[in-house]
Amino acid sequence: MSAIEIKHLTYTYSKKTPFEHTALKDVSFVVEEGETFGIIGETGSGKSTLIQHLNALIKMKDGEGTILGKSLKDKKQLRQIRFDVGMVFQYPEYQLFADTVEQDVAFGPKNMGLQKVEIERRVRRAIELVGLDFEKFAKRSPFELSGGEKRRVAIAGVIAMEPKILVLDEPTAGLDPQGREDILALVKKLKEEVCPTIIIVTHNMDEIAKEADHIIALFKGEIIYNGTPLEVFSHEDFKEKTRLEYPTATYIANEIRKQGVDIKQVVTPEELVSELARIKEGKNV
């Protein structure tokens, strides 16, 4: 069973008004369980509309879709789907509202109608998973924390619902380099321990090239490319068709290739370095 299957999804805002705007056009893709799946596209390409379909925040009108086998069109399943798909929006720290970290993280599990003991277990586990000391943070106000800590608490609030699929929209936006690295490491940890299927929405090509097993690239609501990072970033017309940049390593390889160097396609700096090292070695022999 695939984690997510979307078929022929089309979505139009303000239908039949002068403000009609088609955000998604005949979008189809499959996310396998255990995959880290990247969704890339410039601002306004439909990424945000797409992910809001995945947990039925936007009701599916045209098209078909299943989440872990449950239909997005079956009204009785929507509640369960919403719990199965955890959603970490951009700047999630702005969702914090409760008096203490503990209460805030418990909001999701409470809405699920869980038993008190179970809620407590999940809250403690989630706070610890995101790398915060439970004893130290549980009773503090979320508004007193640093930016990075707030973001972790917000992520814990989603993790406490123990979703099977986690969607993250620009999880590293606005953070310093260390903060970005920490959050990506956290995502890896969450993948191993809580939700095996991860979807990351981003316009940071370097990050997604490193993290994702599979990518779809959107432009004006349509899927332009669908494949592994290597496949997607190997397209010569990638830049024109998506209005995005290549990952830095790919860009460098492309430019060097233009200079007559026979270099294989790469997407991460590590691949670039090892490929260049191989060529250099060949020359020295």
Binding site: A249, V273, K280
Partner: peptide, 17 residues
């Protein structure tokens, strides 16, 4: 802090010949 990517790559290349 982290070095800018070009400098990072150069450093790694330095270790590779």
């Amino acid at each position: 802090l982290k070095l800018p990517l070009p400098a990072q790559i150069a450093n790694q290349l330095n270790e590779n010949g």
